[in-house]
Every structure is written in C-alpha cells, then in structure tokens.
Simulated scan of single mutants.
Amino acid sequence: MTEFINLSYTVMKKMVTELKATHAKPDREKMKSLTFGMVSDISRVLAEKGFGERPIDIVEALVFAMFVIADTYSLAKPEKEKAIEVIHGFYDDIEDHLINKIIIQDHNLTDAAEIQAVAAKFHDLSRGRFNEYGAKFKEDISDPLVMSCPNTVSYLLDNLFIQTISKEEKLQLLGAVSDKVLYFWSGCVQAFKEDMRTCP
C-alpha cells in the first residue's frame, strides 16, 4: 500500500494545478483547493531544502493541511454550527478525491482491499490528527515567547516522511516549514473573513 501514498513534488504540483481556487467557488471547493495548495507549498519547501526526492505520506500531508484549513475556517466564520457542517462535507470531499482521483485513476489501483485500506487510514487519521495537531498548536500559541509553531511542525515532520528523518535533518526543516505554515494560516483566516464580508 505504501507505494500509493508516496508523493513527489512533481505529482503534487500537477494536482494543485488542476485544483486552483477561484473566488466564485463555494466554500468547500475553495477549502479543497487551499488544502492541495498548502501541501504543494510544503512540498516545495522540502524540495528547496534538498528533501524533494524523499517520499512523503500523502495521507499525512493531506490531513495536516485539512486541519489548518478547517481550523482557520472555523475561526473566521461566526456561525459555528454551519461552519462545522461545511467542514464535515469538506472532509468527505477530500476523502472522495483521494480515493477516486489519486488512488484509483492516477495509480490505477483496482484491488478493493487495498483501496479500502487507504480509505480507512485516511478516515482514521483525518479525524484523529485534527485533535492531535490542534493540541500541538495550542501549546505553541500559549507561549508568548514562541513566534512560530515548533511543536506543531515537529509533530508533522515526525509523521510526514515514509522513512523517518534524523534530528539534524528535522532541524534543517523546522524553521522554513514553520514559516510556511504560519504564512498559510494567517492567509487562510484573512481569505475566509474576506469571503464573509463580500457575501451578499
């Protein structure tokens, strides 16, 4: 199953090109595009730091981006019950895209057991990791001396690569990935709030 969840920077670049967001798209479509955009940006940072050929777990990458998108969407929207409903639908959309577009179409996987295994892994991780990444991010923002999100990104890097990277390698990536995550985080909050102001 591992070969179907390894993702190179080139493949991710192709995926995000297909899913570029437009202002006219509904919230869930925009969230979907932002998710793949964030994974693409993180993949680009890895490539710039010399890790472009190191295979990553696409499921882990997606669920981290989904956490960021869902959390920022929830922060930006005042109607929390409606926001939760949209987020649940957004999670279903990503799962459907992962299975039907990436796993079945792009990788031509037809074995029902393997497809189910990938789907189950995604479902469990996407729900479980939301709380885990959320707890790490709360640790980061609770410390007024911390200007980035080292705990959150450290946890991401621990789980992102198919083959675990060393402590030294993680230190090489920590600052750059943290900067990218914070940049994307603030940008998403602003974008979702802007959508709310421009809605009729």
Rank of each mutant, 00 (worst) to 15 (best):
1 M>P: 07
3 E>R: 14
5 I>Q: 02
6 N>V: 09
7 L>T: 04
7 L>I: 14
9 Y>S: 09
13 K>V: 08
14 K>D: 15
17 T>D: 15
21 A>E: 15
22 T>V: 11
23 H>Y: 15
24 A>L: 15
25 K>N: 12
27 D>T: 14
28 R>P: 04
28 R>K: 13
30 K>I: 11
34 L>V: 07
37 G>P: 00
37 G>Q: 02
37 G>I: 00
37 G>V: 00
38 M>V: 03
38 M>C: 07
40 S>Q: 08
41 D>H: 01
42 I>Y: 00
43 S>A: 14
44 R>V: 04
44 R>A: 09
48 E>V: 05
49 K>E: 15
50 G>Q: 08
52 G>I: 02
52 G>R: 01
53 E>Y: 12
53 E>T: 13
54 R>F: 09
56 I>N: 00
62 L>N: 04
64 F>Q: 03
64 F>M: 04
66 M>K: 11
67 F>L: 05
72 T>S: 06
72 T>V: 07
75 L>I: 13
75 L>A: 14
77 K>W: 01
78 P>Q: 09
79 E>K: 11
79 E>D: 15
80 K>T: 10
80 K>V: 10
82 K>Y: 10
82 K>V: 06
84 I>R: 04
85 E>N: 12
85 E>M: 12
86 V>D: 09
86 V>W: 01
87 I>Y: 03
92 D>Q: 14
93 D>N: 14
96 D>M: 10
97 H>K: 12
97 H>R: 12
99 I>P: 02
99 I>K: 07
101 K>C: 09
101 K>T: 10
102 I>E: 02
102 I>N: 06
103 I>A: 02
105 Q>R: 12
106 D>Y: 11
107 H>F: 11
107 H>C: 05
108 N>F: 08
110 T>H: 13
113 A>V: 14
115 I>Q: 04
118 V>Q: 03
120 A>R: 12
122 F>D: 01
123 H>C: 08
124 D>F: 13
126 S>Q: 06
129 R>D: 02
129 R>G: 04
130 F>L: 09
130 F>Q: 06
133 Y>W: 08
133 Y>L: 03
136 K>D: 07
137 F>Q: 04
140 D>Q: 10
141 I>G: 06
141 I>C: 11
141 I>H: 08
142 S>G: 07
143 D>M: 05
145 L>I: 11
146 V>G: 06
148 S>C: 01
148 S>P: 00
148 S>Y: 09
149 C>G: 05
151 N>V: 06
153 V>M: 03
154 S>K: 07
154 S>N: 11
154 S>V: 04
157 L>V: 02
158 D>R: 10
159 N>L: 15
159 N>F: 04
161 F>T: 00
162 I>W: 05
162 I>F: 07
163 Q>I: 07
164 T>G: 11
166 S>M: 07
169 E>W: 05
171 L>P: 05
171 L>G: 13
172 Q>P: 03
172 Q>T: 13
173 L>C: 03
173 L>F: 01
181 V>H: 01
184 F>M: 06
187 G>W: 01
189 V>S: 07
189 V>N: 01
190 Q>G: 09
193 K>S: 13
194 E>S: 14
195 D>Q: 10
197 R>H: 11
198 T>E: 14
200 P>K: 10
200 P>F: 08
